[in-house]
Simulated scan of single mutants.
Amino acid sequence: MGRVQFADYAKVYVKGGHGGAGSVHFRREKYVPRGGPDGGDGGDGGDVILRGNEQLNTLLDLRYHKYVNAKDGQRGESSKRKGKDGADEIMEAPMGCVVYDANTKERLGEITEHEQEIVVAQGGKGGLGNWHFRSSTNQTPRHAQDGKEGEERAIEIELKLIADVGLVGFPNAGKSTLLSAISGAEPKIGSYPFTTLQPNLGVVTMPDYRTFVMADIPGIIEEAHDGRGLGIQFLRHIERNNVLLFMVSSQQDIEYEYQALLDELRAYRADLLDKPRILAITKMDLLEDYQLDEEKKVDLDIPTVEISAATNYHIDELKEIIWEQIQAVESSREDNESTG
Rank of each mutant, 00 (worst) to 15 (best):
Y100C: 05
G147V: 07
S136K: 13
P187Q: 08
S136C: 02
T112Q: 12
I155A: 06
I111C: 13
T104R: 12
C97L: 08
N172K: 06
A185K: 07
G109N: 09
A181V: 09
G169T: 06
L128N: 12
L128S: 06
E186N: 15
M95C: 07
I118K: 04
G127N: 07
G184F: 08
Y100D: 05
R142I: 09
P171T: 04
A163G: 06
G147S: 10
I118M: 04
S180E: 15
L167E: 03
E110W: 04
M95R: 13
L179Q: 08
Q116C: 07
R153V: 00
K175N: 02
R153W: 00
S176G: 07
T140L: 10
R134D: 14
L178V: 14
G123P: 11
V168K: 07
G124W: 06
P171W: 04
T137V: 12
L128W: 02
H143T: 11
L178H: 13
G126Y: 00
G169S: 13
Q122N: 08
R107A: 11
D164W: 05
E186I: 13
I111L: 15
V165T: 14
E152D: 03
G169Q: 01
A121Q: 00
K105F: 11
I157C: 03
L159N: 06
N103A: 15
S183A: 07
N172D: 14
L159A: 09
E117L: 12
Q122A: 13
V120W: 03
F170M: 13
R142P: 01
T137L: 10
